[in-house]
C-alpha cells in the first residue's frame, strides 16, 4: 500500500465519519464541530489532488470563517429544550431513508458505469503538478480573463449579501408591526 492510497483511505474514513456525525449528533454544536472536521478533511483531500491554493482557501473560508460563524450562533442560541430535532413519524422517516439510499445507489452506479468513458490524461498539463505556485498563477490568469464577468458578478453578490445580512440582523423580524 503506497503512501498516497493510505492517505486517501485515511481521509475518506475521516470525512465520512465526521460527515455522518453531522447528521446523527443530537446536539447541533457537536454537529457543527464535526462539520468543521469534515471541511479540514476535504481540504486535505484537495492537497492530495494537487489543488494547494484551493485547499488553503477552503481552510480559511469554510473551516476558519463559515463554520466558526455557525458554531458561534449555535452557542448563543443555547438550545436546551431542542436537542433532538429529528423528523417525526416512522413511516415518513423510512420513506426518506429509502429515497436517500436509492439516490446513493443511483449515483454510485452511474459513476461506476460512466467512469470507463473518461480517458484519464494526468500527464498532459504541467500546471496541475509541482508545488502549487504555477497552478496558482495560472488560476489567477484565467480568473481575471476568461471568468472576469463571473468574478465581477460575485463581487456584486457579496456586496448585496453583506447589506442584506446587516439589514436582516437589525430588523425585528416578521412581516407585521406589533
Amino acid at each position: 500500500m503506497t503512501a498516497d492510497s493510505f492517505l486517501f483511505w485515511f481521509l475518506a474514513i475521516v470525512t465520512v465519519t465526521s460527515g455522518l456525525s453531522v447528521i446523527l449528533m443530537n446536539n447541533p454544536i457537536y454537529s457543527a464541530l464535526s462539520l468543521a472536521m469534515t471541511m479540514v478533511g476535504i481540504s486535505a483531500l484537495f492537497i492530495t489532488l494537487n489543488a494547494f491554493f484551493i485547499a488553503g482557501v477552503q481552510l480559511i473560508v469554510y473551516a476558519g470563517a463559515v463554520m466558526v460563524l455557525f458554531t458561534m450562533v449555535l452557542m448563543l442560541f443555547d438550545l436546551k429544550h431542542e436537542m433532538q430535532a429529528f423528523v417525526k413519524g416512522k413511516f415518513t422517516g423510512f420513506i426518506k431513508v429509502a429515497s436517500v439510499g436509492l439516490l446513493a445507489g443511483l449515483l454510485v452506479g452511474a459513476i461506476l458505469m460512466s467512469v470507463g468513458l473518461f480517458t484519464e490524461k494526468t500527464t498532459d498539463n504541467p500546471v496541475t503538478f509541482g508545488t502549487g505556485m504555477e497552478a496558482t498563477k495560472a488560476l489567477g490568469r484565467i480568473l481575471y480573463t476568461k471568468y472576469l464577468l463571473g468574478f465581477e458578478a460575485l463581487g456584486v453578490l457579496l456586496l448585496v449579501i453583506a447589506i442584506g445580512a446587516v439589514a436582516l440582523s437589525r430588523s425585528k423580524g416578521g412581516t407585521h408591526e406589533h
Binding site: L33, G56, V57, L59, I60, A63, V68, T71, T131, G132
Partner: peptide
C-alpha cells in the same frame, strides 16, 4: 515541511484557532 503555498497554508491553519476558544468556552 516546505509547502509551495506557504503563507496561505499558515493563514488557513491559524484560522482554526477559533475552534479551540469556542470549544473551551462552551
Amino acid at each position: 515541511y516546505d509547502i509551495g503555498i506557504g503563507i496561505v497554508f499558515i493563514l488557513g491553519v491559524s484560522s482554526l484557532a477559533a475552534y479551540t476558544l469556542l470549544m473551551a468556552g462552551w
